[in-house]
Write a protein that binds this DNA or RNA. Structure first.
Lengths: 341, 341
DNA sequence: AAACCAAAATAAATCGTTTTAGCATATAAT
DNA sequence: ATTATATGCTAAAACGATTTATTTTGGTTT
């Protein structure tokens, strides 16, 4: 177990002050008028012995950690997993590491995690915020921390965020169902006051109203235990046999819905037409394939990271927070004729 | 932006030495014979002003960072995402944070990432190792770092690892196909010399031999660009119309396989029977559902984290490395009668 | 020869902790 | 009355870097 080299070891080996080494290694040789031969000698030796500065000591002194804290709802959800993956790539490319965690939309847990991040001195925060976290985010911002929200935002907190046009997305999807002739269209989603969910409900309701139909909104309470999602969902579907179409509010509840339909022997779209928010393999491969509202994950990740990097690079300029709203894509798959009884 | 309190601030405020504060806060008051009233006074004040130690300074001094580095193949793959999620939960519960990244099975990238982790002074490593990383892992171990591998192992490196019984899993799945009367069974997987892949191929071949059938193994080169996986796969399936069953080596390639079958209008299992390694929603919800070899993700995560915590807690005792081999579960779904031409 | 200046390098302070070694004081033992 | 022993607390060094302030050296001016 060879001892790790410190800057002092380098300094001693070359009979030079550690100050000089530090200046050279940080590219301030010119500015500090350090002789060209010495610079070369130091660089050569450092490369030779493979010295790398201790980043903890560096962070302690400079206050920068080159780490970004990423908080998603649940890293095992394919939507968040792909975004996390893309953000990770972009971050590493820019010299930042990611510390991540899942909030489970739990306010208390999220508060703990924010404190953890704070404690770890992360340089910036990327957060899909749960409800009730307004104050903590505000306090972060007040303390000058760069924060970017995504997937949803907090109406009373003025900060940058990236999200999709949820309202139009569900409006458009619902209209698509109406145009195909469906009359009894339900919207099934997780109970939540988060902006994206509120907008999705509203988009659905606007479309239903515009079509002169009657709205049926079913909200399921989220739970880690899948059975506690499936049960109320099963009850709802059994109790509403008149439905000829369902719009699901997230990929998770959409997947649960398909499982129930499989259980009950109902086929999409002949028995019930189905559209779900968030596209992924399950919907593409379902037979017949399920129409889905596809979010532009790459674009979301790109925007998130570039807005954050911008803030990290000139923390001085505190420009107006940006709100970036991206378009979704309705992937129409079961566009076969309406086939309802 | 209120300045963060340091231990010196606390010491000054109470007119006590920072040494004493440190001892009290680290629960060494008794051991260091510090008066009960003083302990109480300090604790009360600390709680009141909400002081929290700077973990960077702490890590610098103690050499422990309370961070675990987690390297998976690809965090956006549902198998790795669920394991990561479970490991994350267990780690946080034990006071550890996770820094994670995806290796893409790229040796160079993995080396860089290991160096990054090292630089960040992570206390322990959880790695799904790519090929060619033997030396780097060995060097970690030689330097006394706790390392736990999972999903696969490195035959020439003596360290703890957790994996499933890959050989028996594919043997068993292949036997299941043979018992149902399938004669032309192919094994399609990613080209790889990793242990889990080698074992999966071997299990398949053993079963084929035992059944007196002829083996057909197709290896696809992994690529981030899905089209470069789909193309050779499509060619293979078109060129081998005699196949009546396919065993896929991973969920990813299994999913691609299903997409091709959908393209070609082939149904599972009537046209071709399908079994895939790694179970997930896509297979469960496919109509008809696809039989899959389900890995016990919870058990894997539990074992990984508990072996690692064990090593972290008594780094002194260097017992024999543990190899934990878990059982998979063949989820038989399309057990309907063989329906081949 | 004294004074000045620029170039080149460095000493020492600092970040916020933990930990080693030790200082007073009081009580008990010789 | 001196020596031990225990109690309660603290000064200062260390972790490994960055940064501020300063010194040394040699060459030019006056």
């Amino acid at each position: 177990m060879k001892k790790k080299l410190s800057i002092v070891d380098i300094a001693n080996a070359l009979n030079v002050s550690k100050t000089t080494i530090s200046f050279i290694l940080n590219g301030r040789a010119q500015e500090k008028r350090i002789g060209a031969e010495l610079v070369e000698k130091v660089m050569k030796y450092v490369a030779e012995v493979g010295y790398k500065a201790n980043s903890l000591a560096k962070s302690l002194r400079t206050g920068k950690s080159n780490t970004i804290g990423l908080m998603v709802e649940d890293i095992s959800n394919p939507f968040f997993a792909s975004i996390a993956r893309l953000i990770e790539d972009r971050a590493y490319k820019n010299g930042y590491k990611i510390i991540y965690c899942s909030t489970d939309n739990d306010t208390q847990k999220t508060q703990d995690l924010i404190n953890m991040f704070r404690d770890r001195h992360v340089d910036g925060y990327i957060i899909a915020p749960p409800e009730g976290i307004e104050e903590d985010i505000e306090s972060l911002i007040k303390d000058g921390m760069p924060v970017v929200l995504f997937d949803r935002h907090l109406p009373n907190v003025s900060t940058d965020f990236i999200e999709v046009d949820n309202l139009f997305s569900t409006y458009n999807a619902t209209r698509h169902l109406i145009d195909q002739g469906f009359k009894n269209i339900a919207f099934v989603t997780f109970a939540s006051h988060q902006t994206q969910m509120v907008d999705r409900v509203k988009g659905y309701q606007d479309a239903i109203n515009s079509g002169g139909l009657e709205a049926t909104v079913k909200e399921i309470v989220f739970n880690q235990d899948e059975a506690l999602i499936m049960n109320p969902l099963r009850d709802f579907m059994k109790a509403n046999p008149q439905l000829d179409a369902i719009l699901f509010g997230t990929n998770h509840i959409g997947t649960c819905g398909l499982k129930i339909m499989q259980e009950l022997g109902k086929k999409a779209p002949t028995d019930i037409a189905v559209i779900s928010f968030d596209d992924y393999d399950v919907f593409e491969l379902h037979s017949p394939p399920v129409t889905a509202i596809s979010q532009p994950v790459e674009e979301i990740a790109d925007n998130v990271i570039s807005v954050l990097l911008e803030k990290l690079n000139d923390s001085s300029v505190s420009t107006k927070p940006q709100s970036i709203i991206l378009k979704t894509d309705l992937k129409i798959r079961n566009s076969s004729l309406k086939g309802v009884s």
